[in-house]
């Protein structure tokens, strides 16, 4: 228990540091929101109109320390502020639309990739030199080594554009109304999510699998495994309860981290498949020097990574008695 309390306090301090960095880092970038908005029109916006933009965004000019305290005060209240690129829409509203798509696609894909990777990695180590170890593992590792966008574009071009098996873009058939009670809508969401999901899982699989296999091999050399086998326990019990339970520990931290990063979205997936999500929203906020939106998203990523890490600590304690 003391371990968990100590960890919790540590995360609290980390969160404060992250919140502060989160405020100052974006402001170190060159350029301001007015300038960038002006540039978007590439000379089509009347230069005289810049005055009215400055008037609208007036609050950006306040002294930095004042901005910082306002920021902290609003955070406590859970107010992320108003987006500048989408002025005057609140940050929370800008984020909410993309967030559910990201959580669904990237979240499910991460869990899938991790689970499948763990299982295949376990099998590969247990049956070294057999089918999974000599065929699936190298293929998965090679796929993981390819740049993701290359595989995604290839899949999109061949499977969607040429073969027509999958739709080309977006999270659902845009002709339909967003309505979870409508079966056609639900099936179009699944259909549109298949290809992005598949490419994410395929490319993420190799890393998990390899990590698990190597950990397993280390664990399998331990004396207690030999003892378990000598006791005449079933292969399955030795593999899962004695070996895999211990071998999974190092991967768990990595899994928690990647779960935390789910919130950040998967920018390249979103760009290639025109799929909605947080990655593109984040990119737009950075390009637009939209400090409140940037802060909002970075904050969510930071907090979810910290939360996921804390969660991993808890699991660790449950799985590994030594940590108690």
């Amino acid at each position: 228990m003391r371990f968990l309390v100590r960890r919790f306090l540590f995360y609290l301090v980390a969160a404060y540091v992250a919140i502060t960095l989160n405020f100052f880092l974006p402001r170190l970038m060159v350029g301001d929101p007015v300038q960038v908005m002006f540039s978007k029109f590439q000379g089509r916006m009347d230069p005289r109109a810049v005055e009215s933009l400055k008037e609208t965004f007036g609050f950006v000019d306040a002294p930095v320390h004042e901005q910082y305290f306002t920021y902290l005060k609003h955070l406590v209240k859970g107010d992320l502020g108003i987006s500048l690129t989408n002025f005057p829409v609140p940050v929370s509203e800008v984020i909410s639309g993309s967030l559910e798509w990201t959580l669904r696609l990237v979240g499910i894909a991460t869990i899938f990739a991790f689970s499948i990777g763990m299982i295949l990695g376990t099998i590969a180590a247990w049956r070294r030199g057999k089918f999974v170890d000599t065929l699936i593992l190298p293929i998965a590792s090679i796929l993981a080594a390819f740049p993701y966008f290359w595989i995604a574009m290839l899949a999109l071009y061949y499977l969607a554009h040429i073969q027509g098996w999958f739709p080309i873009g977006h999270g659902y058939n845009l002709r339909l109304k967003e309505d979870w009670g409508d079966r056609a809508y639900v099936s179009s969401v699944i259909e549109h999510g298949m290809l992005p999901m598949l490419t994410v899982v395929i490319t993420a699989l190799g890393g998990w699998m390899l990590g698990m296999r190597n950990n397993m091999i280390n664990v399998l050399a331990e004396d207690y495994i030999t003892l378990a086998q000598a006791k005449g326990l079933s292969d399955r019990r030795v593999m899962l309860v004695y070996a895999a339970r211990n071998a999974i520990l190092p991967s768990l931290t990595g899994f928690a981290m990647s779960l935390g990063f789910v919130i950040g979205g998967a920018l390249i997936v979103e760009i290639v498949f025109a799929y909605p999500g947080m990655g593109f929203t984040l990119l737009n906020s950075v390009n637009g020097r939209d400090y409140p939106l940037m802060q909002g998203i970075f904050l969510m990523i930071t907090l979810s990574v910290l939360a996921a890490n804390f969660f991993a600590d808890v699991i660790y304690v449950l799985l590994d008695p030594r940590a108690r």
């Binding site: 999109l156 080309i168 873009g169 845009l174 290639v272 025109a274």
Partner: peptide, 20 residues
């Protein structure tokens, strides 16, 4: 009038070339 979001020029152009 319907305007889909394309996060990059490439997906927008793919849809355009596809006649969508």
């Amino acid at each position: 009038m319907r305007q889909p979001v394309y996060p990059g020029n490439d997906p927008a152009n793919l849809a355009t070339v596809n006649g969508e």
